[in-house]
Design a protein around this nucleic acid. Structure first.
Lengths: 125, 125
DNA sequence: CCGCATCCGAGAGGATACTG
DNA sequence: CAGTATCCTCTCGGATGCGG
């Protein structure tokens, strides 16, 4: 809470802050991208692996998100010319650089969620 | 990039991470809320003040966002029974606790935006 | 001054069937 | 296996007019 500016006009810090957050959220401020990045922080994954690990996402949406993230330079798509086909997704350095943001958001969320229920760890492996 | 888990199953860190980020983004992961919080970090503001300071937002959307944020406990609405009416919006402690998140997102955004153009500071005051 | 009511278009995200 | 192709719903956000 800085009151360095006592007038009602907007200051540069605010405008730049807007800019930054708006840009950041344009890349990851939606339903699935943070989850995808979170998964890929443990290393590259194949398409079906991602799909199975992300509960509730549809195929269409997963592909759309992956394509957008590839265009934004957050992930890299690795295609192996094999039969059956094999595609892996991997974070770029830019994507990796988002880890601190996700950590902060995750920590705040866990701290302030209504009732912190422990997530069941049991997952089909 | 932690590879503490070499199997393909999901681990607890990931699930909790999802949870936290999804919850956090459900509160501020949209077009205007980060900007509104950013404004209020400098202190409480009146409705019209907010409207003028946030370029491009419509009245309807501003009110909707403010109501949602009030319901989520991020801001407090202060009504002064005067004529003409006077309403001020102020961050709650919960809303204030989001400052670090916005700072991190803003910093990352400014660092990685295509061309960092200086924002013109000239604003009608 | 501070909204609320109404209408509207765009697009995000979902379900499902099909293909190289 | 790794996607396309359709179709559909629902919410977000915008424009505008009115009311206490």
């Amino acid at each position: 809470m800085k009151k360095e500016n006592s007038t009602n006009s907007i200051n540069a810090r605010q405008l730049k802050g807007d800019c930054g957050t708006v840009f950041t959220l344009s890349l990851i401020g939606n339903r699935w991208k943070p989850v995808i990045i979170w998964r890929l922080l443990d290393g590259k994954m194949r398409y079906t692996e991602l799909k199975k690990s992300i509960n509730g996402i549809s195929e269409r949406v997963l592909v759309l998100q992956l394509r957008e993230m590839e265009n934004d330079g957050l992930i890299q798509r690795l295609i192996y010319p094999e039969v059956p086909p094999r595609v892996e997704y991997e974070l770029t350095p830019l994507g990796l650089s988002m880890e601190p943001i996700l950590e902060v958001m995750s920590a705040w969320g866990l701290d302030h969620m209504p009732q912190e229920q422990e997530v069941p760890i049991k997952v089909a492996g």
